[in-house]
Structures are given as structure tokens and as C-alpha cells.
């Protein structure tokens, strides 16, 4: 009894910093963000002044602010396309990199390089120079034409093609996580399958993919969080600028951030439900 009490006291000692930090830098700010989002917030000589206006900020965001609603729809569409592309590509790259070949280290070094240098300003410079689309792609396709022809879907396809390199640049960490997971898979399983006459293709779908599903979940989460926080994201930029807008201000910006968080959670839930469904199906 005494020992467990001491044990837990030590535990609290080590995590006390986190608990204080969580309260000051996360929980209280979240509560204040919620509160601000129902207010008009003004800077005055003696600090900030709030006046309660109910749901007006939310109403304005959804009904009056076309840039925001369009941005959200665009964001959701991008996530629906980018995340599967990133996950699929990372998985393919990871499988190639776990094959028995020479120069693995060299390729891994190259594939991981973007993680180091991908920041908003660098991306922006590259996009402005058109260096994020595959060489030659823009000569064959025009995003505008695709959008006119196929609507939203064409628009997304165009985005994927024109910023293909940018999308791939977000794959580094995911590739590493997949590689580690593949290396941990039980090899005897594959031997048994190949004795039973399964081809490499079959054992990928029946063995590798189901076993990797939890890791796919981790990678989806990581990708979603990274893309949602990236500083070139239109919503992220909008929240940062609306904060200083005289007509909108802090109250409005916080309402946008609350809505944004809600949308992120919905997207995450959809992906997780899908992955769980796949896993259950595979288990059966």
C-alpha cells in the first residue's frame, strides 16, 4: 500500500509539468476560444472587451462569408483526395524500400528529404515557380479545363496533377512508419501462404494489407493533422488574417477555428469508420 502510494506520487511528480501546461496552454485557451466565439471582442486601453452576441459569428461565417464556406468545401475535398493518395503512395514506396535491393539507404535518404525542408514559405516559392507540378504536366492538362469539364471532381483531379510533387512531399514520415510496420510482419505467414500457392499479389491483399490496417489509421491521423495545420492551408491563413480584420476580429476568428476543428473531427471520424470497416471485413 505504502509502496504504491509512493509510486503514484513519483508518477505525479513527473507528469505535473504536463498537467499544469495542459491547463494553462491548452484547456483554458480552448474554453476561452469557445467563449470568444459567442462574443464580439474589442481591444481597448485596459485590455480586451467582450460583448455577448450569441451565434452571430457562426451565422455570419456560414451565411455571409463565401471565402470561408468555399474554403471549407475545398479543404474537405482536398482531404478526401490527398489523404488516400498520400497513404497509397507511402505504402507503395515502403513496400519497394523493404524489398531485397541495394541502395536502400540512399533512396530512403532522398524520400525523407522533403520532411526537413517543407515549410509554408518554401512551398509557396516553389508553387509560384510552378516547380510542384510534374515536368510537362501543365502542357497537357489545364486545371481550368478539367474543372469546366468535370466540375468538382475535375477540379480535384487538376489539383492533384498540378501539385503532385507537393502532395508527395508530405509522404516522408508515413513511409518510415509503413517500413517499420512491414519489417515487423511475421515472415512465416508468407512462407505458409506461398506453399499453399498464393501469389505475391494475393498475399499482399489477404495478409499484408489487413495486418497493416492499424498503421494505416495512424498514418491517416498524422497526414490529416499535418495537412490541416500547414500554413498554406487557406482556412489557416484566413483565421490568422481575420483576427486582425476590423470588421471581424478575434470573436469571429475564434468562431472560424471552432468550426474548422469540428470539420477536422468529422473528416477524421469518416476515415476511421472506413478503416475499421475494412479491418472487420478482412477479419471475417
Amino acid at each position: 500500500m505504502k509502496l504504491t502510494a509512493r509510486n503514484s506520487a513519483k508518477g505525479y511528480f513527473f507528469i505535473s509539468g504536463w498537467i499544469i501546461g495542459f491547463l494553462i496552454f491548452t484547456l483554458i485557451p480552448i474554453i476561452r476560444t469557445f467563449w470568444f466565439s459567442f462574443n464580439r471582442v474589442r481591444f481597448t486601453a485596459d485590455g480586451i472587451k467582450e460583448s455577448f452576441i450569441g451565434l452571430l459569428n457562426y451565422k455570419n461565417a456560414f451565411l455571409m462569408d463565401v471565402a470561408f464556406t468555399d474554403g471549407l468545401i475545398n479543404y474537405a475535398g482536398q482531404m478526401a483526395v490527398f489523404i488516400p493518395v498520400i497513404i497509397t503512395f507511402s505504402l507503395i514506396a515502403a513496400i519497394l524500400l523493404t524489398k531485397d535491393i541495394k541502395g536502400k539507404g540512399f533512396f530512403r535518404t532522398i524520400f525523407f528529404l522533403p520532411v526537413i525542408i517543407t515549410s509554408g514559405p518554401v512551398m509557396k516559392q516553389l508553387i509560384e515557380q510552378n516547380a510542384t507540378s510534374l515536368p510537362g504536366i501543365s502542357e497537357y492538362f489545364s486545371v481550368q479545363e478539367l474543372a469546366n469539364e468535370f466540375g468538382l471532381l475535375g477540379n480535384l483531379l487538376g489539383t492533384v496533377l498540378s501539385s503532385f510533387i507537393m502532395i508527395l512531399w508530405f509522404c516522408g514520415v508515413q513511409i518510415l512508419i509503413f517500413i517499420a510496420a512491414i519489417q515487423k510482419l511475421d515472415q512465416s505467414m508468407y512462407e505458409a501462404a506461398s506453399i499453399d500457392g498464393a501469389s505475391g499479389w494475393q498475399s499482399f491483399w489477404k495478409l499484408t494489407l489487413p495486418a497493416l490496417m492499424p498503421v494505416v489509421g495512424v498514418n491517416v491521423l498524422y497526414t490529416l493533422v499535418t495537412l490541416s495545420g500547414f500554413s498554406l492551408n487557406t482556412i489557416v491563413q484566413k483565421i490568422s488574417t481575420d483576427m486582425y480584420d476590423i470588421n471581424r476580429g478575434i470573436g469571429y476568428a475564434t468562431a472560424l477555428s471552432v468550426i474548422y476543428f469540428g470539420v477536422i473531427l468529422i473528416i477524421l471520424t469518416v476515415f476511421m469508420v472506413f478503416i475499421n470497416g475494412r479491418r472487420k471485413k478482412a477479419e471475417r
Binding site: 485557451p29 470568444f36 482556412i235
Partner: peptide, 19 residues
């Protein structure tokens, strides 16, 4: 809560932190 903190975008906490 540590996992939840990872999902919360910086936009939700940055304005009160800034203030």
C-alpha cells in the same frame, strides 16, 4: 488527453495564448 491534444489544431488555442 495527450492524443486529443495532437488532433486539436493550433488555431483553436493560439488566439487566447496570444492574448
Amino acid at each position: 488527453l495527450i492524443l486529443v491534444t495532437f488532433i486539436i489544431p493550433a488555431q483553436v488555442t493560439m488566439i487566447p495564448q496570444f492574448l
